[in-house]
Design a protein around this nucleic acid. Structure first.
Lengths: 250, 250
DNA sequence: CGTGCTTTTGAAAATCATCAAGTATAGTGG
DNA sequence: CCACTATACTTGATGATTTTCAAAAGCACG
């Protein structure tokens, strides 16, 4: 198989190997706003790419030529300061649409946390297509609205919550959004939370240091709020306590 | 961290006293996506209200029955924790569209910083109207995208910037967005920045305490970066230095 | 010219960051 | 399969920025 390097990602096929009609991520993405009979038009625009773990596939400040859709795996979205300080603004699981912006350059970077598959669309062509599919534009507005709400919640966390509250919030949200089977963001609280990201990622997401993340999790463990069978697995032992911590009730 | 809760707001007229066609805020708002000849349909949905300074006109968690458009004055948008900790997630100047959300309840509160005029729309009716005006829906998506970018920038500030950097960022952004005449968010850097909000508001916006805000501004003054003719007026004496501070260059 | 509010300033305290080892864990090649 | 190395994670001691507590100084308003 010939891998062609385009900037920092690997192009596996110009045509989606699994066309939109059979896409696993479709039920969770804006694409499902397009009817079965029209889906071919979307598929014609899509390039399916593989991104290996740790690879940056959107570079902050680069010309924004594409939209992306995460079809498998998870990405982290981040912004950097010149001296290297990093803020992860969100994690993008399967179904996430990326690249919404009016600006001509990307306002954030994106890097694969785990091996990923993404769908890439020409910004220009997808914009044109959107004119024919107002339903998809409506979905995009819904998605953007939801992200805005999530962003405000995150601002509350970053601006006003303690380290303990931040970690509790993170775990509770993760538990609600953990992929149990296929659902990327269900509502049932999971017992076990899988963390595909490193402590460093968590720290940069919560505005803390890795040491504080580690210490806080250890303390949760000694307090019997969680178990830590492995570094990337957390078992919620006292979901109620964590939730009340997360909402700021000490 | 003052929290005065007032439910009702002052309704001045069911019909806009200044109809949409002659609205000062229209050039800066999503409403200008609607043609002159169709603007009456929008005006028919709009109720123009006066909100006195300090009044809460959106209560977090209340049923989201309306959209709002700020036609004069400035609002602060915020989220609260049960113990009163507050995070201001943004300031909404003239032209801002409020209430975008899929949820049936408001995800944030809104309170007038200065005397305001707002346009109120029934969520249900405006949604219906939007189906006839895809251009306005497109504008809404643009607006939401821009706010998302701003939110990410704010997360970087809250999660990773020092107090000095936060204040510098705040002043630089304010300078760029200060209403010089009519433009609510121009690009020319203003010398003088007017701060309609209190130190407490600034603190809650930047994730700091009022004391830290005050001390940091005083230090900027002794360092000749700014002048503070009055508590609500800041003169940028060294815009370049503030900008490099804001971007994290010490 | 008080009265109540916001703002400023000072001193002490605390949370979280930094510096520094030490311990798992995973991936690699012998 | 096992050592070996690199990386990630944990734990401890110290330190600094920011918060908290406290009080004085400005300012607006009746």
């Amino acid at each position: 198989m010939t891998h062609i390097r385009v900037r920092s990602l690997v192009v596996e096929s110009a045509r989606p190997s699994e066309p939109c009609a059979a896409c696993d991520a479709r039920p969770f993405s804006v694409c499902n706003a397009i009817d079965q009979r029209d889906i071919e038009r979307l598929a014609a625009l899509a390039a399916s790419l593989t991104v290996e773990a740790g690879r940056t596939f959107i570079e902050e400040g680069d010309p924004a030529e594409h939209f992306f859709n995460v079809t498998a795996g998870t990405a982290k979205l981040f912004k950097l300061l010149p001296d290297g300080r990093r803020q992860i603004t969100g994690f993008a699981p399967m179904g996430t649409f990326l690249g919404l912006a009016v600006s001509s350059t990307y306002a954030f970077g994106a890097e694969a946390v785990e091996p990923m598959r993404i769908c890439r669309f020409s910004r220009f062509k997808l914009r044109a297509l959107l004119d024919d599919f107002p339903a998809m534009e409506k979905r995009l507005l819904e998605v953007a609205s939801n992200e805005l709400v999530a962003a405000q919640e995150q601002m509350l966390l970053l601006g006003r919550k303690t380290a303990r509250e931040r970690l509790a919030s993170f775990l509770v949200t993760r538990a609600a959004c953990t992929a149990n089977g296929a659902t990327p963001c269900g509502h049932r609280a999971a017992e076990k939370v899988t963390l595909p990201m490193t402590r460093s990622d968590i720290a940069d997401y919560l505005g803390l240091t890795i040491e504080t993340v580690s210490r806080t999790l250890t303390r949760f463990k000694t307090e019997r709020l969680i178990d830590i069978p492995s570094a990337s697995e957390i078992v919620m032992r006292d979901h109620a306590a964590l939730e009340s911590l997360a909402t700021g009730l000490h």
